[in-house]
Design a protein around this nucleic acid. Structure first.
Lengths: 192, 192
DNA sequence: CGCACTTTACTTACTGGTCAGTAAGCTGTC
DNA sequence: GACAGCTTACTGACCAGTAAGTAAAGTGCG
């Protein structure tokens, strides 16, 4: 039996890790293969070997986000809504702690008009999945009598997602911003 | 007396108008002087005559946003909170209608780490003014008994700003998004 | 086991295109 | 004749992407 996760996959993963950090701090259009290769200590063309076109790298990154999100959702599907909400906030805050990153959806939305088609499709699917999860959380919390808010679960889920995305970006300019957003969302959910 | 708003100021204004559209659709890093000059029907260097460095153009754009915002705030300072809220929503929606633009603060936040210092300073000031106005609206609405929400005016103002910024971006992927956010904010403000 | 062959994971060296920015010249108006 | 508002022509840097070569590891076979 062959150990498949050797040099190739390791380099590939390290490229994606470096590219991910650059994507979430600077944006897809604001980093080049040079940035990745010099950080990794290889030549430019080595990146092209693993990801022939920059689009391939971008698509691979979003696909990975989607897999992670799917695992994240599954891993905490059984938790009570209050804890799920806490994890949702923690997810957002972990981006902020890491060099004031924004969430992938926020970066991909603002760069949307400049992205290649394949990346747009992936981004739209990813955002749809984020949206659905946020709505599910709002719905489940209300059904279990933990959240008390006006309007539908869809409206509340969409609002929470929007506020966290915006809040994470605005936190770059004002440290306390994200905490304020988290606090107010919690209050608006009527959690005692 | 000389009519000052002649060729120079006219070209300068047209450059800024074209650059503004590019900024809000593609982002500051994703358009070049070539894009502006070809749209305007002049040569590259003509743009450099009016704005020697791209940073100068960026700063001028944000300064203009700040002047506009200040006029916007002044023009409707006396309106009842419900109407002020409506105008706030309309401001956001007018961006969306125009080629799915995002609001300036959203674009500047996500590109923040790549912007020159002078632009960052302007962006931070602009966002601070937006924030203050949103908070004032929440405070005045509550004081006049029109809005009924939990938490402080600061928290509610910051949340509204965040949700509109995020919602405007996410509307690029899903047409109805912004309307949903507007509806839910209105509900959460306890407006009957 | 040992030798030939193939594949993997790169390298060096390059292309054509775009970028911001500059220098020098031209033209029409006060 | 001075200056505003351009133009043409250019520079050096960076960009994504490619082609050809190489060293080492893996594979098939006698």
């Amino acid at each position: 039996m062959k150990i498949d996760t050797d040099a190739k996959n390791d380099t590939r993963k390290r490229i994606m890790d470096i590219a991910e950090e650059l994507l979430l701090t600077r944006g897809f259009n604001a980093f080049s293969y040079q940035w990745v290769s010099s950080e990794l200590g290889v030549r430019n063309a080595a990146i092209h070997y693993h990801f022939p076109h920059k689009t391939d790298l971008g698509v691979a990154l979003i696909e990975r986000y989607r897999r992670r999100l799917s695992r994240f959702i599954e891993a905490q599907a059984a938790l009570p809504p209050r804890e799920q909400l806490e994890r949702y906030f923690e997810l957002a805050h972990s981006y902020f702690r890491q060099d004031r990153q924004v969430c992938p959806s926020g970066m991909l939305c603002t760069e949307f008009h400049t992205l290649p088609d394949a990346m747009r499709d992936q981004a739209a699917a990813f955002i749809g999945e984020m949206r659905d999860w946020s709505i599910d959380l709002a719905a489940r919390g209300r059904d279990l009598g933990v959240f008390h808010y006006p309007g539908s679960a869809e409206e509340m889920g969409v609002l929470m997602f929007s506020a966290l995305q915006g809040g994470l970006q605005l936190a770059r300019v004002d440290d306390g911003w994200l905490d304020t957003v988290k606090r107010q969302i919690t209050r608006l959910l009527g959690v005692e």
